[in-house]
Design a protein around this nucleic acid. Structure first.
Lengths: 236, 236
DNA sequence: TGAAATATTAACCACATGGTCTAGATTCAA
DNA sequence: TTGAATCTAGACCATGTGGTTAATATTTCA
């Protein structure tokens, strides 16, 4: 009914919800209000997984209310299968942490059960057409959480308190090699200097970073933004 | 004109754009189409910063077209001032990486210059009222990029290839302490075992992780999801 | 120019670390 | 109950590591 492009193949959907009433409610809603094809339903994550392997739907509506873990890990597992299945998280909570984790593990949408049914249909439509859909209100929540996490992160790495800023360029080079687990001898060879020189640098680094050994130095470097420029990575 | 709550104080705005034509264009637009108060404009980031310190606006519209760096770092600096100024990034590019970085450093909105003027006004309105605003299309882009980053991250941590999975529980405990830069003696004391036993464990760990020393072991652990559960952190 | 910071090397020493082998105690699943 | 895995521990040895002091060359900046 509400689909924009009639010539497109009907998206096949699997719905997962541990509450059977909700499940059939959503199923009915979709069947009446849209022309998506609900090929299967499940009340548990494990059953859902095998159904997904069998039916290869385009879309999975996953309730993640169920006592915390199940819903999210189920999504993670589905993503891991790499079948091109696009999952939409469905829950009653707009907890930013939940939203964040859902998007992190690969959910292509996140809808609250309290939202208007039209929005659910719209979300499915968007996700089915390859987009990622997050309602403006949830999107806003997500970003607040996202930015807060970053702020807390970068707070610790604050210029004058960051002892890394007191290292000389050469010391940085040496530390850089230390963070790759290279020995004195190795560093000496790479930098074309004697092993003793390396030792001197390393000792100076230890003093400046106020640590006692290379492991602690490496840890300090890693925890305080060293090499943040090179390796663009997200690790939560 | 378009403000919803007339009793609210007019949001004060500073506009920053190195192109003077754009600058006055946007200024005019805002003055005509909305009742926000453009208290100042600037054509460079450094000038903008001092103006912001002086006028303490609620909103800053920051063009980040200017040769890459300037716009984004300016936003970062503004955030660092912690004056409660809310910055909206304004640019011609919908490059996901740009969007991602802008949101990362604390932009409260991101608008394309090609978007309808009404959308700019709406964005300012939303941001002025404390929300974070990202148009659906850009939001979608952001999430694709966001998820891609994560996928690349987690791909390397893949079960059987992750040598960490072959460690025994005791070995994990020992490695855990190693990742805190603790010596044999320290580990022995913490685990109430002899120093020799620790050495044995450590040697087994080295063999299983195929490394030669503690630094490399720690690096392997950190790069392969060890202790990912404890420390919830974002490091880009 | 002259002081300060930085980069380089040496020598000496104590100790931590890593490699290897052996071996008893315990636990756990076949 | 027997074998496998794990945890424990000791001995031996070579080498890497960290602490200290001192000295020279180079660079940088006031």
């Amino acid at each position: 009914m509400r689909r924009g492009l009639e010539f497109k193949k009907k998206a096949r959907i699997i719905i997962v919800d541990d509450n059977y009433d909700h499940l059939s409610g959503i199923k009915e809603l979709i069947e009446i209000e849209s022309d998506f094809d609900v090929v299967a339903t499940a009340t548990s994550a494990s059953v859902a997984i095998s159904l997904i392997k069998k039916y290869r739907p385009e879309i999975v509506l996953m309730d993640i209310n169920m006592p915390e873990k199940d819903g999210l890990t189920a999504i993670a597992e589905i993503e891991k299968l790499d079948l091109g299945v696009r999952t939409i998280a469905l829950t009653g909570y707009d907890d930013p942490d939940l939203i964040f984790r859902a998007m992190k593990i690969g959910a292509k949408g996140y809808i609250l059960k309290t939202m208007a049914s039209a929005q659910l249909i719209y979300a499915i439509d968007e996700v089915a057409s390859g987009k990622i859909y997050l309602p403006a209100t949830l999107s806003s929540r997500f970003f607040e959480y996202f930015q807060k996490s970053f702020k807390e992160e970068t707070q610790t790495v604050n210029d004058e308190e960051n002892l890394l800023n007191y290292l000389t360029q050469r010391e940085e080079e040496v530390l850089d090699l230390l963070t790759q687990g290279i020995t004195y001898k190795g560093v000496a060879q790479k930098l074309f200097i004697s092993e003793t020189t390396v030792k001197t640098h390393v000792n100076n680094i230890f003093q400046k970073l106020q640590v006692n050994d290379r492991t602690q130095a490496v840890l300090y470097a890693l925890n305080n933004g060293f090499l943040n420029r090179r390796k663009v990575k997200i690790a939560i």
